[in-house]
Design a protein around this nucleic acid. Structure first.
Lengths: 220, 220
DNA sequence: CTCAAAATGTTGTAAAAACAACACAATTTC
DNA sequence: GAAATTGTGTTGTTTTTACAACATTTTGAG
């Protein structure tokens, strides 16, 4: 089956055999698209048709507010999905913009088919729904974490909380983050130069060290 | 059945008959608790045992960070739940504090039983899970909305975006919000007096009007 | 490898927010 | 209904942040 090797790698479809995937492909009206770096995969305001899954490459999810200000919501990598909430909430248009940050292979699934138990009551479909729920809950968890970050009252606390969370996630005081400085500022909703100053001061104080996307939290 | 009239009013159990609820009660190891105003329903750090649902009354969900700063995440009212994500994510302790803001009747459900399809493959259980998923997705949606608020770069934009969202939700330019000024400041993670100043200026400019928890957005 | 574009750190300045203190209003409690 | 508690608006001060401009470094495309 087309692109099955990539599909197999994703959490949602890992348990599905190629034969079952064949049927599921039909059931979910699966389509594939290729995008080049910087291509728009989904444009905010577009009518909601599909749930999108990144199969290869990466993309950034951004929101543009009425004033034209852009904020980085998160980055998506292979296996990540976008559009389930929109589908479930009965939204008629996408509420964010998804842009390829590198060349991408993307899989589109019909949102109605994905969320409504299929007529055939196929086991495969159930498995997919179960994983989908799991992913939504994980996403929920991440959103809550980010919310706690943005609730901090100054840049220093935001950065430290972010780095601490990343450190915990990595299980080490040495870790890489997915954002460069410009993107991190955007992610934390703070001014880039202010973030730069804060990071420099934290390094000065001996609390952290960093190089490019690599960071180190110095305890004690 | 005990408290069935209250249970019946909630979205999750609305479709369940008293007879089925009887069985479900056993299946989910349902317990009831009464709390007085200001009582702690869940203390942050406590081991996760149950998913909590407010049956009567109201509560506030707050998070206390390592510095001791408290931030208001949201208010819960009858029918709202807390603890599903914790359960699903394999967390061993509750990550937030839930406090009764008025006298409360609360229902506790065993988190394992709630999330794992039951042995009896009972239809009732499936219905509950489906509604649960719906609620998690709605919550996800709300979190995303709040995230967009907190991403705004100044208090004025935060307030206006919040009020706009509430106005949309109510479907009118006249609407009530669930927070008083102090709580709103907390919810938006801004200083109370700064919020007060901003609101006064917005009223001065003729953009909005308000009294207590009642607001009015003046267009054009 | 070369050159253009993007990212980064730094600095000074202006704007915004936090903080603190207070008077007064509203609400709750007994 | 009186007293105590909590909420609100205002003001002045301090701290933090955003903004803008710039020099340098890094990255990426051809």
């Amino acid at each position: 089956m087309e692109n099955f090797s990539e599909i197999k790698k994703t959490k949602i479809f890992a348990e599905i055999s190629e034969f079952d995937m064949q049927a599921l492909s039909f059931c979910l009206k699966i389509k594939f698209r290729n995008y080049n770096k910087n291509d728009t995969i989904i444009a905010q305001g577009q009518p909601v048709e599909d749930v999108v899954m990144i199969l290869k490459g990466g993309a950034k999810l951004e929101n543009i507010d009425p004033f034209g200000d852009i904020s980085l919501i998160t980055k998506l990598k292979a296996g990540d999905i976008y559009g389930v909430e929109n589908g479930f909430m009965g939204e008629t248009t996408y509420k964010d913009t998804l842009t390829a940050t590198e060349n991408c292979l993307v899989m589109l699934m019909n949102r109605h088919r994905l969320l409504t138990p299929c007529q055939n009551k196929c086991k495969r479909h159930d498995i997919v729904v179960r994983h989908l729920v799991q992913m939504v809950i994980e996403r929920n968890y991440e959103l809550t974490e980010k919310l706690k970050l943005l609730s901090k009252k100054n840049i220093k606390e935001k950065v430290l909380a972010y780095l601490q969370a990343q450190s915990n996630k990595a299980g080490s005081l040495y870790f890489d983050i997915p954002y460069n400085k410009t993107e991190l500022a955007n992610y934390l909703s703070v001014d880039r130069s202010a973030l730069s100053t804060t990071l420099s001061r934290l390094r000065e104080e001996g609390l952290i060290d960093f190089d490019k996307k690599h960071y180190h939290i110095k305890k004690g």
